[in-house]
Every structure is written in structure tokens, then in C-alpha cells.
Design a protein around this nucleic acid. Sequence first.
DNA 1: CGGAGGATTGATGCTGTTCAAGCGTAGTGG
DNA 2: CCACTACGCTTGAACAGCATCAATCCTCCG
Lengths: 245, 245
Amino acid sequence: MSTHSLPVSPGIHPYRPPAYRPDGVGTLRRVSSATALPLAERDALEPLSRRVALDQKQTLYGQDEPAASVYNVTSGALRLYRILTDGRRQVTGFAFPGDFLGLSMLDRFSVSADALGPVTACRFERLAFMDLLRGQPGLMMHLHAITGQELSRAKDMMMLLGRRTAEERIATFLTGLQARYVRIGRSAVTLELPMGRLDIADHLGLTIETVSRTLSRLDRDGAILIVPGGVRLIDQGRLDRLSAQ
Amino acid sequence: MSTHSLPVSPGIHPYRPPAYRPDGVGTLRRVSSATALPLAERDALEPLSRRVALDQKQTLYGQDEPAASVYNVTSGALRLYRILTDGRRQVTGFAFPGDFLGLSMLDRFSVSADALGPVTACRFERLAFMDLLRGQPGLMMHLHAITGQELSRAKDMMMLLGRRTAEERIATFLTGLQARYVRIGRSAVTLELPMGRLDIADHLGLTIETVSRTLSRLDRDGAILIVPGGVRLIDQGRLDRLSAQ
DNA sequence: CGGAGGATTGATGCTGTTCAAGCGTAGTGG
DNA sequence: CCACTACGCTTGAACAGCATCAATCCTCCG
């Protein structure tokens, strides 16, 4: 997975890899601000959590598996996806530090989740988690709002998959990732892409060839710069226009 | 909107329109069983509700409008959609009796909602609704689960829009509608289609021509029978296979 | 009867897919 | 140190599915 390690490329690309701060503790510290939990609520949750660690390609849970836990990602990234019996795959999203998984608390997971690289997460036993929530209406409301935001983003994805061109999909994907990275305090200019081209393709309803070609074209046109393990956004205006709602 | 009124067609199609029971009261009586609320919880909600009625094409609320209310549909059907600045539209779903709208309780509606025909709904003032929920953790959990199911269906739609063929989309749409109709106690064989072909197209990420052609082909092949205002499902096995996960 | 709106059908074209070959880099082992 | 392999990515050529453009049909309704 060389392309995922973002080495400092010595030549053309003045690229500095994002500060890698292994936190390695089972906490909720690095929850993004948009979905941030108030301190008191975080403290209520923390005693329930157990730290889990995954290596690349390991599965956190599988689609339709009984959902025994709720997770909060603390480091790394995961891909969330469904697969049809004939192998066609839809990557419904990617999870980054601060993101909750399984928050809708249905009996079974609606997607599979596996690690794009080393991942750590906090694990909550679902029933205990729900018991706690029953006594914390404010926290419950907050988690409900997070689910509501996820639902809103799912509708964005429907619009993207149903009605947008390949170039718009790629641009929207990049600027969306940028916005998420900003919220968790990462570079807003050079985006690490921890997922492969095939993951992006299966997320955007395209083929790997179209993803590759479209990225190449955006690079050639000076909108982006493809760097090892990621992408640097050059023409922000153009990208924003392409991804405009 | 003649094709939406489902008249008894005298000739070839032995079609009986679904019993039209105007309930006309601002209650939660006809909530579907899958999302049904326990009696006690329904009684807690009912005092907060005000009945609203819409005529065809009237708007219940618009995308990005401050979300002052939560709704529960009591009769009729609505289309839920987003529009891009250049006019491209994605219909994210349709709402039928029993469905909640605005349940994620974000500050603004994430889609627009307007009536496909005459509609009645219960309206809840959002803040009062939320206040009530704070004291009713069981009800809150239940509504959260409904939102979780909606999120799961949104992921189904992503798979459909990203990875399925036109024929599969149509078949999945029809069998999905069938399942919803069964849950609210309507015919499982002859489906009323209160939405037009354009609505279906914008829901499935197709054009109106492709929807029309695909329905015609399924009709010609004996999988369905197109009747005025709806569709009769003939070859259930074939449709199920086409929409199989 | 005539108009309006939706639906259907046909001809043609384009965007993205499919099939196929080649490239670049990392890792391995002689 | 370098050949060899593996894997992901890129690029090209041909193709297909769905879109686009356009005409016609159907039904309702004034």
C-alpha cells in the first residue's frame, strides 16, 4: 500500500504529510466539532467504552450481522459498503476519526465496515449504551441529530449518484472530503486519500477507469495535483463550482 | 392528472380502485405497523398535533426552509426532492400514510415536500415535540429507530442509483412500493402509482423515456400489466429476482 | 371539437463501461 | 544490488446503455 503512506516526495511536490499523532487511547477526545459531544456527555459515555484496534483490511463488522455494538472512530479510516450477490459493490461512505458507526442502533448493521489502514475505535455495548441514553435525553437528542445529519448526507449522495456527471462526482467527493478534514483539523489543501481508486469508484457509482481518467483530466487542467497517496486541490473555485448544489 | 385517479377501466383491465376511505381527522390512527407507535406513545403525541390539508401540487415545506414542524402523513402521498440550481432534480423518496416527515429534527428541512394529490397530515410544533420527547425516552428511541430505518433505505437507494440497471431500478421500485403498500394495508397486486413517470425517473436516476420504455418492456414480457393510474404485478418471481439484493 | 398534459415510441448520439495493454513503485529473494 | 513479482493506477480503443431530440398517441376536460 505504498500509495497510501504519503511519503515526502523529494522532488516536484512540496508535500508535507499530515502530522501523525497516534493517540492510541480509548477516548472520545478527537470527536469532530460538528458532531462534538459536550464534555459532560462525553464523560458519561467514556466508562462504557472499550478500545478496539484493527489492521488494514480487517473487518469491524459485516452487513446484516447482529449489531451488538456502537463504535466511535478514534484514528484511521474505514470504508462502509454493501455488496450485491453478483459482486457489484456500493461504498456508502467512509468513516474518519470522530465518526460514530452503528448509531442508528438497529438490530443488524446495514453495511459492512472494514479498515483502510490501521484503525482504532471506541466500542460500546449497544444495550448498555441504550440504557444509558434512556437516562440522558440531551445526549440521546444529540446522537439523534448526528444520525439526522448522516441522513441528510445520504440524500446528497442520492442526488450525486442519480443526477451528476463523473467530473462533478469527483469534484464533489474531493471538496466534501476537504470539508470533513477541516472539521477534524487536517490540511485543507493537500488531501490524503486513504482509499484506493476502486473504493472511490464504488462510492461514486463509476468504474475505476473513469475515476482515474477524470482525476487525470482535472490534473492536466490544473484543477488538482495528483500526489502520492493523495491529491492537492489547486483551483478551489473550479472545484467548488463543479460540486455546487 | 387523469392517470392518477385510477378510474375503473371498463374493458380489458379488471381493475378495482383501492377503497378510498377519507379519514379526515388529525390522528395517528393509520400509522403503518412497521413504524407503528405503541398506543400510550401515540396518546402522548396526539394533543400536540394540528391537522393540515394540502391540495395536489401544494408544498408542505421547501428545502433549506427552517424546520418548524414535524409531520405525520394521514392520507395521500407526497414527493420528497432536491433540485440543483440548473434544474436537475432528485426525488429522494415518496411519503405515504403513516410516514413521518422532518423526524431528524435538524434546523432546516433537507428536502422539499409537495403533494401528489390531496393530502392530510398531523403537524407537530418541533420544539414542543422535542420537549415532549425529552420526557419520553421510549418514544424518543422509537422515533430514532424509524430514522435509522430511513437511513438504511437511503443506503439501498445509493446501491440502486450507483450500481443497478434501469430494469432493476424499475423492478426494485415496484416491489419496494408493493412492500410499503402491504404494510399500510393496501393491495399487494395492483399498485396505484400516484406519482407521474417524471417523478419515478427523477427518483431512479433515469429519464422519463427510459422509465416509460422499461415499463413497456416489462409489460410486453408479461412481468407487469400497465393499468390506468398504476401497475399490476404479474410475474412476481421475475420482479423479485430483478430487485434481489 | 380542440387543446393541454402526460405517456409512448423511434432515431440518433454521447457519456461512461468494457476489454486490454502498459506503467510505476514497493516488496522479495537470489 | 538487481531481477522478478505483485498490485494499483493509467491510458487507449471499441462498445453499450441510457440520454437526447423529436414526433405521435392517449385521455381528460373545457
